[in-house]
Write a protein that binds this DNA or RNA. Structure first.
Lengths: 137, 137
DNA sequence: GCCAGTGGTAACATGGAGGGAACCACCTCG
DNA sequence: CGAGGTGGTTCCCTCCATGTTACCACTGGC
């Protein structure tokens, strides 16, 4: 990855231009994509599906405290964005399998970095929060 | 980065264990950290500060459609999490400079991947959405 | 007959993130 | 004297993501 960071002013102008006529940086399509990735459950489901395909019920059991509604909706959003493929099998009670597409695998490869960072550094962040909260009264 | 992905079941159990007694995966500290990074304006401000330190007013002009309230609050959150350093200079009207800490630079290095991915691929995502919306009536 | 499991949908409630506008103290410049 | 720039805070309101609950059709097993 080219770690050179272009002048932020320029970059932000580009971001703004992309949302011309819609409301400025607030709904720039790039930031929109990023936002949708970070729904409350999206990254967790991507993590699971990155390992192997899962069926609906399996995912529900794997993530105990997601509601059925949010599981349905999050999967549908991921499918809509092209990250997830949904396949129905004509078993006696029809079963449904969810798997990552190529786009999904590509996206998860980039997403993975920040997830790993959080796994490694969340204690440092928690410590920083504690320090901050203590010093501000 | 080690691209080997551990068994999702195991990983999710670990995530769950971290939030023991608080409410399950819903507020696992790792996911909590990730969520805070993806506030509406956080990544944009990190992008700017990754380039060089900025003053409050500079940031406000750089990001035209952020409200003063959200700028203050987002910067405070980033400072609280240890990503941003806030320094007050005793100029005649005191001025304030915001810069990244080492933790912040480290975090942004990982965040950068997914931002670049979104910049590169947002058209593919938009295309996928259009296709999906067209095919579902 | 009846309950459990398949994969959902629909109606409704709610909490918190975000937005808008006004206000603050201080200083300088015209 | 008044306007505008410094960096905020406070109050109020709105809307959307999420949660809760109930319901659906179908099948197999007890």
């Amino acid at each position: 990855m080219d770690s050179r960071i272009v002048d932020a002013r320029t970059k932000i102008e580009i971001y703004g231009a992309l949302s011309e006529g819609q409301g400025g940086l607030g709904d720039c399509p790039i930031r929109n994509v990023v936002q949708s990735i970070f729904g409350k459950w999206s990254s967790l489901l991507m993590m699971a599906l990155a390992e192997r395909p899962y069926r609906f019920g399996e995912l529900r059991r794997l993530v105990p405290d997601i509601s059925q509604r949010m599981l349905t909706q999050t999967l549908r959003d991921l499918q809509r964005d092209g990250y997830v493929h949904r396949e129905v099998f004509p078993t006696k009670p029809p079963s449904v399998e969810y798997s990552l597409t190529d786009l999904g695998r590509s996206m998860f490869a980039s997403l993975h970095h920040i997830l790993l960072w959080a796994e490694t550094n969340f204690e440092a962040v928690r410590a920083a929060r504690t320090r901050f909260d203590a010093s501000e009264g």
